[in-house]
Structures are given as structure tokens and as C-alpha cells.
């Protein structure tokens, strides 16, 4: 089956600054792909390009076999922005039901999405009165409610308690098992080990694109944090050998 996301030489400029320097990679269907990198590395810009809301300076972005941003993709792709984008003056349930209705889903689907993010007890509460973590879960519910084939989540687990975080990752893997593809960004390295595939970007360049095990093996350490550090050092030293050894990511830098 065709890949869920294919990037070819993706270049994005913001103002006079180049944010993404020709990224190429592919994400197969039915996996949880982690997009890892420090703040300001271009994670959000890459996700926006995949969703089709980012003006692209060069290269191509193909999503579910179609150019990113195509009209029919709007019902097949779900997007969670980094800052929670829900209506503060509506309740959690009203938000979920509105986004459900936009995707032609029922009220029961909306209530299920609210339950899936652990907000059933707060469903009748105005979003404006929720804690930051709850608010971002309300936003997550609205991204999941349309049952999209590709879900792009920009730092969905920031500020969540560890138990909830584990639950959410469990839910992501359930979705992946059912054939849904997830692209999840994080700057917390301990979440990297939960992903089926990893994309590590730094300063707008792809440093690694492989499974967590392969990344560990390539760096020769068992700790992912340490593995990333070595890969970054290797790429900074301009060593094509180390980057090339981690698989397909080497060509991007």
C-alpha cells in the first residue's frame, strides 16, 4: 500500500529565514511516527505542511496519495495544533459535537471522543474553565472525532499527568493497529521509545528516520537520548557515514 506521507525535498521559508532545508522522508500507513526535535527545529512547520496549511517554498508533500491540502483530504486528515484550538466559551461536549458535525459524525461519536481523552467527567464544563492539560485534551478530542485516516498531533501530551499520558499513547497505538496513521511531535525524548518510527529534526534538517531500535543500533547505545546526541554530533561533524548508517534520513542533510 502507498505510504501515508511522502515528503520530497520539502523547503519552507518564513520571511527571509529558511525553516526546512529540503526534507525527504516517507511514513508508512498504520504506524505511530514520532517527530522529535528541540523547540524551534521546524516540527510545527513540517506538520503544517503535511496538513496543507503551510505555504511551501519547494518540493512536494503527498498525503494519502494526494497533494497535501487537497479538498478531499480535509475529511481524511485530523490536525491538533500546539496551542489548544477549541472554543473557550463552549463546553467540552459542545466543542466535540460541533467538530463531529463538521465531519458528518454523530453526537454519540462526539461523546465517545470526549471519553477517549478522559474528559467525560468534565464534558459539561466550559473549556475556558479547564486546566491547561484538560484544555489540550479537549482539543485532542476534536481532532480525533472525525475518525480521520491520518492524524497529525502537535505535542499532544504536554502537561498531562503520567497515567493519562500512558493512556493516550495506548489509544494512539490502538488507532494505528486499526490502520490509522499518526504523526506525533514531541520534544520529550522518553516518548520517542513509544513510537513505531522516529523522525528526528534539528535546525530544519532531518537527522534520523528509522525505528527506535535501528536508531539505537546505529548510534551504538541503548539510551535514545544518548543516541540522538551522538547522531546530532555526527551530523554536525559533517560525517555522512554516521548519518547514512541510520537509513534514509542521511540524504536530507
Amino acid at each position: 500500500m502507498e505510504d501515508a506521507i511522502v515528503l520530497r525535498d520539502l523547503v519552507v521559508d518564513r520571511g527571509r529565514r529558511r525553516v526546512l532545508h529540503g526534507i525527504s522522508c516517507a511514513v508508512p500507513r498504520g504506524v505511530v511516527a514520532g517527530l522529535l526535535g528541540p523547540s524551534g527545529s521546524g516540527k510545527t512547520t513540517l506538520m503544517r505542511a503535511v496538513v496543507g496549511v503551510q505555504t511551501v517554498g519547494g518540493g512536494t508533500v503527498t498525503v494519502l496519495g494526494r497533494p497535501a491540502g487537497s479538498t478531499d483530504l480535509r475529511r481524511r486528515v485530523g490536525y491538533l495544533t500546539q496551542a489548544p484550538s477549541v472554543y473557550a466559551d463552549l463546553t467540552v461536549r459542545e466543542n466535540a459535537r460541533y467538530f463531529a458535525a463538521l465531519h458528518g459524525r454523530s453526537r454519540a461519536d462526539a461523546d465517545r471522543a470526549v471519553a477517549d481523552v478522559g474528559l467525560s467527567a468534565a464534558a459539561g464544563q466550559l473549556v475556558g474553565t479547564l486546566s491547561g492539560g484538560q484544555r489540550s485534551r479537549a482539543s485532542l478530542a476534536c481532532a480525533l472525532v472525525g475518525e480521520p485516516e491520518l492524524i497529525v498531533l502537535d505535542e499532544p501530551t504536554v502537561g498531562q499527568d503520567p497515567v493519562l499520558r500512558a493512556d493516550l499513547w495506548g489509544r494512539f497505538h490502538e488507532l494505528a493497529a486499526s490502520g490509522v496513521t499518526l504523526l506525533v511531535s514531541s520534544h520529550v525524548m522518553d516518548e520517542a521509545s513509544r513510537c513505531d518510527r522516529l523522525l528526528l529534526i534539528r535546525e530544519g534538517r532531518l537527522i534520523a528516520d528509522d525505528t527506535p531500535d535501528a536508531v539505537r543500533a546505529a548510534a551504538g547505545v541503548s539510551d535514545l537520548d544518548e543516541a540522538f546526541l551522538r547522531l546530532i554530533r555526527a551530523s554536525e561533524a559533517g560525517s555522512a557515514v554516521a548519518a547514512g548508517a541510520v537509513g534514509t534520513g542521511g540524504e536530507a542533510s
Partner: peptide, 13 residues
Amino acid sequence: TNGTLERLLTTPL
């Protein structure tokens, strides 16, 4: 400013 517009424009609306 809340990002809801950007989100709405990624839906079938």
C-alpha cells in the same frame, strides 16, 4: 488568534 479558524479551514467546512 485562537487557532480555531486555521483548524476549521482544515475540515470540510
